[in-house]
Design a protein around this nucleic acid. Sequence first.
DNA 1: CCATCTTTGTGCACGCGTTCACAAAGGCAT
DNA 2: ATGCCTTTGTGAACGCGTGCACAAAGATGG
Lengths: 259, 259
Amino acid sequence: MATGRTHRPATRSRGIPEATVARLPLYLRALTALSERSVPTVSSEELAAAAGVNSAKLRKDFSYLGSYGTRGVGYDVEYLVYQISRELGLTQDWPVVIVGIGNLGAALANYGGFASRGFRVAALIDADPAMAGKPVAGLPVRHTDELESIISDNGVSIGVIATPAGAAQQVCDRLVAAGVTSILNFAPTVLVVPDGVDVRKVDLSIELQILAFHEQRKAGEETAEGAAAATPRPGAAAAPAAAGGRKGPDGDVPAVMPA
Amino acid sequence: MATGRTHRPATRSRGIPEATVARLPLYLRALTALSERSVPTVSSEELAAAAGVNSAKLRKDFSYLGSYGTRGVGYDVEYLVYQISRELGLTQDWPVVIVGIGNLGAALANYGGFASRGFRVAALIDADPAMAGKPVAGLPVRHTDELESIISDNGVSIGVIATPAGAAQQVCDRLVAAGVTSILNFAPTVLVVPDGVDVRKVDLSIELQILAFHEQRKAGEETAEGAAAATPRPGAAAAPAAAGGRKGPDGDVPAVMPA
DNA sequence: CCATCTTTGTGCACGCGTTCACAAAGGCAT
DNA sequence: ATGCCTTTGTGAACGCGTGCACAAAGATGG
């Protein structure tokens, strides 16, 4: 406990706010595009527009990295690309494993965004013995039995979980036990991990539901929303709607009753 | 104050904070699981643990929806499932189109999370004429030419973009022009859309880079980090590192120079 | 060498989100 | 009927993130 952190040091690492870290890849992408067009320098205004953020926010973000940039001119594109790459840790090679080679896992394996930018797919792992050996994206699928040895042999510290929800936690436990400390989870499950392990979640279903919420709101603002009443009398909360008859038959959304 | 919105009403819709909306699908998933196990009621503590959040946060979230829940007992599972489903707009059917049937698009089409919970894949659309008619996930792929008619015929208001980055903005424009007002973007591009259109972005590359940042930080905390120096003398910012020779050769991460 | 003009870097204020802590509310046992 | 015990709902404080607005810094032209 050299550091005074109690148990959640992840909030602000080395003084760089988490929100800023999340935007750095965005800046990096825009800068890389400029670099390919051989643009030497760029102003905060231009770069912010390309990245889709506020220019003041961008300048403040960069200020956390240090004082790169020249007043009256802007930022040197190449130099900034290097600085951000270094800050994000992309100057080193990150071997990753993808577990669960279904439709999604295969798509991820083929995704070009993996190969570039310092990430290298070290292995594709699946629990289905029939998959073992089959080539996907140029790599032979390995069986789950080999998971631990693959991770330790390749020094993998980042794992991608693309398994069904039911297997995700178990896979996660094995990854963590084998030494993985960062996990990108595509399975619709809440993963529990020990301290020191980072988990990021990508959940298609959740994103769609958030869109549906706003979509409904947009639609409801124009038409009358009096139909179902905003506050439909919770009153006797003991009455569990009309769902008494059908209680989650097949994991689908439970039967909803009309008003 | 009917609505004092100047131009960004999306921040807090109907008094429900955006952060809360983003968590509702999480609660709904946990509640659905409880419902399938025929659990009648659940306390905020239990449900929060299942959803991986703080119990106080959960209670405050629910308080925005209304006073469902009984003190001393907890929340009625079925009733809450219904209320959240209604709030998220999942009691109605949302037809969606997926544009770009590559590896990822096909994976999305096969993803079970789409079909359940009120979302229905109305059509799969691809620009490649060779794809047209080929069945993917039980649906024939339609050509991009039909995009507008498909959207208007099916009343589609939610679109999923899974095309390469280069085509994303163009597809987006056509979707919006045809009447789509919510977009889930998987392409690594910043989409510009008119006001009133919601865009949510899922970017695998960005997620990985964020993980890499934390991974690097974790590794650097134990070993000496004095190698490259925390503040490597920006000093003469006019010196654009050693990148003068190689300026972004192939879109890969630029050649990094050692200290 | 100086004036002017552009653009960065940041102090400050504001609003949202999170968390604590507790009073109110309701069930339940006696 | 009454008191106890559990759990909700929320007031209040705090911290993070965002955006404004401006002074400092440096380039550029005369």
